[in-house]
Amino acid sequence: MAIEVRVPTILRSYTGGAKIVEGAGETLSALIDDLDAKHNGFKGRLITPEGGLHKFVNIYVNDEDVRFLGALEAKLSDGDSVTILPAVAGGALGFAAAAAILGR
């Protein structure tokens, strides 16, 4: 069972620079464990110490946000495509500047 995982630039230090890696697992949780076994430390960047998905990480299965598909328990099938992205607001530059002014 092969699942293609797209890795954001910021996490490629764990994958030896690879943009796309392969993993296996019947759920997202199992997939992340599998990836962590192959790329040590990967899991710690995605999952909080409490075991939930990191607030500023978005993971998509076939372009759909896993938080609406059961989060870490989301079911995966052979051939699925998983994309990991940092959370970025639309017009992110405007937000960053606005937040800076407001001191947030």
Partner: peptide
């Protein structure tokens, strides 16, 4: 765009309430 982003410096707008949404697609 994402190359510049660090996960720990991510941002979710204060207005966002996930319970209003049923699904969310990345395009």
């Amino acid at each position: 765009v994402y190359g510049l982003r660090n996960i720990d410096e991510g941002y979710v707008p204060e207005l966002y309430d996930a319970t209003v949404l049923d699904r969310r697609f990345s395009v």
